[in-house]
Design a protein around this nucleic acid. Sequence first.
DNA 1: ATTCCAACTTGACGTATGTCAAGATGACCT
DNA 2: AGGTCATCTTGACATACGTCAAGTTGGAAT
Lengths: 248, 248
Amino acid sequence: MNHADLMALAKIPLFADLPIAKLDELEEKSFVQQQPSEAVLFEQGDSARFLCVILSGRVALVGSSKAPAEDLQEEHTKDEAGCAGHDREAIIEIFGPNEVVTIAAIVLNLPYLMSARVLEAARIALIPADIIRDLLQDDASFARATTVMLAKHWRLLSRQLKDQKLRSGTQRLGTYLLTLTEGRMSGPADIALPLDRRTMASWLGMSVENLSRSLAQLKPIGVTANGRAAHINDIAQVRAFCLEDGLR
Amino acid sequence: MNHADLMALAKIPLFADLPIAKLDELEEKSFVQQQPSEAVLFEQGDSARFLCVILSGRVALVGSSKAPAEDLQEEHTKDEAGCAGHDREAIIEIFGPNEVVTIAAIVLNLPYLMSARVLEAARIALIPADIIRDLLQDDASFARATTVMLAKHWRLLSRQLKDQKLRSGTQRLGTYLLTLTEGRMSGPADIALPLDRRTMASWLGMSVENLSRSLAQLKPIGVTANGRAAHINDIAQVRAFCLEDGLR
DNA sequence: ATTCCAACTTGACGTATGTCAAGATGACCT
DNA sequence: AGGTCATCTTGACATACGTCAAGTTGGAAT
């Protein structure tokens, strides 16, 4: 890993308090990959050999429901050119710059529970799992930072789980749009959607078609979307719809 | 907290490596509550003042969809005698003996994201949040144990989220029954259901009525249930139905 | 045992969502 | 420009699921 990348790493809270010696070890033993969109970083069941730190781009953790490809009929031969077929899949979490993937698998030394796919071309630092496990053992401040990070993720996931269990797809969509407005409580907003429809649908736990329909359903409360541009007339109105209880 | 309870605490991985001095501090500053079924330990939005360690019984983290009470109309006055009305609610996680609730809120020093309700009369040790935060700061081994615990919970939640996003209610029910068979892969099983229908339904993310119907749907593959007793004719058959993707 | 009540089940029906199929839109290529 | 292709949208239909209402069961109190 080159020095510029190391400096970027060192700015992430997880690594901020590391002593020089440890940083040197990171610089020596880690490396950086450039991955194009759609690349698969690892698959469900792989053993956790690296901590992935996203330097730029976006990566999703993806769980899929279909059986693995090997026991499908060979008749179709439709799998040319990576046309991955149409298994349903669910995006569990999305990671952006300065975030860390796979920490749980590395801490527990267990195989990955989910696959990781690149959503936007990404530069990713790969740090050998052993180094991370040593850090956890030797460096109290690193262990503390990891705890804080995992606690945040626990809250993210439990919030998502709650949404999934008791809100409608349309409400989840609205809530998602609200997260893209960076916390304003009222007034209009122009939103640049960072994901395409397929990805958004996986993230929200619905089909692409239903996502389109949900988008249409939000029109009456002042939400319009066109491709990757969306507009909200009055954030307060959307909040009232999404954060309230199961109407309609 | 009395000495016997402290000894029970000390057997939990989280506290196993604590030095005597810290244990003494725990004994002095913590206390134990006996809570009946249905008791509410804390509510969504409360600030996190104690770590709750379950000594016996069971506790659920519950998210509800209704807006918080303060902005409801006062007309109904239906809230007499704790008749909680019929808001839908979702159980996010269920904790049993030797498990710890609220660790994330305490680590982050943020208000609870969810309420906690007792499912089975429980003895609960309450440890002041300050002590836990001090331990995280001073005791590397405690920080490490916390990390391991949170990592496990991350995996539990992400698995649940995946189930919720891409499996049917009936499949989730089957999967739940399988977890109660303690990992056998085939053969028959008699199961004692630890939860009533309402709680099971919240846990599985469906209505009580649908739970009954899902149970009926499992009959053709050899699952029968009567009250809190269930029986599976052949575990392998249920696995085939629920785990189309082979994980778990 | 009889009564009563809460928990559970079942039925009927409407809404939400997935699926298949057919358009519409828009970007990119020649 | 025109064509080609992927993405997005819309429609039609089937299924999953929630809700209301009625019935059933089982256990506790009398």
